[in-house]
Design a protein around this nucleic acid. Sequence first.
DNA 1: CAGTGGTCTAGACCACCTG
DNA 2: AGGTGGTCTAGACCACTGC
Lengths: 231, 231
Amino acid sequence: MANTSWQDVRKEVLRKIEAEEWRRGELIPGEMELAEKFGCARVTVNRALRQLSDEGFVNRKRKAGTRVAVNRVQKATFDIPVIREEVEAAGKLYSHEIIRKQMVPPPKGFAGEIWAAEKHKLLHLRSVHFADKTPYAFEVRWVNTSTVPKIAEVDFSHISANEWLVQNVPVTSSNFAFSAIALKKSEAKLLDAESGDAALCVERATWNLSGPITSVRQIFKPGHTLKTKMS
Amino acid sequence: MANTSWQDVRKEVLRKIEAEEWRRGELIPGEMELAEKFGCARVTVNRALRQLSDEGFVNRKRKAGTRVAVNRVQKATFDIPVIREEVEAAGKLYSHEIIRKQMVPPPKGFAGEIWAAEKHKLLHLRSVHFADKTPYAFEVRWVNTSTVPKIAEVDFSHISANEWLVQNVPVTSSNFAFSAIALKKSEAKLLDAESGDAALCVERATWNLSGPITSVRQIFKPGHTLKTKMS
DNA sequence: CAGTGGTCTAGACCACCTG
DNA sequence: AGGTGGTCTAGACCACTGC
């Protein structure tokens, strides 16, 4: 490969940014100019700059040009916890129990927004996850049986709803919300904790191309920590 | 645009995956074949499949071809906002206050692991972030003055430590931990809340190529929710 | 070794946005 | 209105890797 590759271009642009030859907020030369400078095709420069844009180092706009990002947005990518794997990774025995399963109209309160356009009844599940038979987390879930009809026939005594969905329904996009809540009396009982204890709450809603799939609110046992890495 | 765009190709391939016309682990047709089928150039198909690969829907290998991902690794990309921006995005006035600043030996308890190899004293900061003069979050931070000597001269009355670091020190990797805690009396007082209230706690440690940079423990006001999206 | 994805080029047209 | 990035095409060569 005698020609300049897009990775070479990316590297050199990144170097200039880190060396502050091009400063934060500054407009960098256009694609044509850079292509000429690097002695490559414009598409090659485009490829490099698009990558840098994806990585958050620069911002691009038609007509306005390409600017060095003022504050590079830090993006942390973390794996969505499949609770069974989390438990087993800790060397404990996983089990779970469904404590309610019924068809009900879409909820209005929590996570109700995602079901705004949904008029049919949803599958409503409440379950508890255990690690070595000790309560680990409690979850409340709604599943759209219109987009996922097959779930009606699943036997949840052997596989959790979460895991079945992960394995059977490709997800396109999802929303997350992390918060801390004080356990209600009923929640505390399920988790073998005290009423009022602080617990981590993760809410998640997922979509397919064909519409909303599921929303879930998971409440972890007091003291639980969710860890992740960024790179 | 009369021709087929790479986004059209991406969409159709994704549809086939979701409809299980192409199943998990299955080999999908080669780029040339798809290009012919879609009536577009091979590069266009390549662009679409590369995107899907980046998104984790398929795995690609030279010679071996492209396969539908068995279990799509679910990754949430989490934007770490500077608290000031978060507050201002909500239309409120941001301010902050340093309540302690001193040089101390590395901590042993929380987040002490990252400083295990560090023998010098660290810059220790405690500060409160306000939204419209109402407490928003409280943070405890350690900064490595060996790797970031310039921070000793910074005037934090105009810029927060977080923001200064984001703007001046490129971060290579970092760790996160989310948990819920019950506020101690002293913490509650700073956040204008009640002792024992449940609060979201985010701990973060960041590294550079040259070593650890900073570790921080942020405690948000009770009721605060941290939101993010995956795509 | 041969098939597959990875990339480059040159030219072209287009969509968007700022001035 | 005009400049900038976004994308498509057709053809080509290369790099990797399974067989």
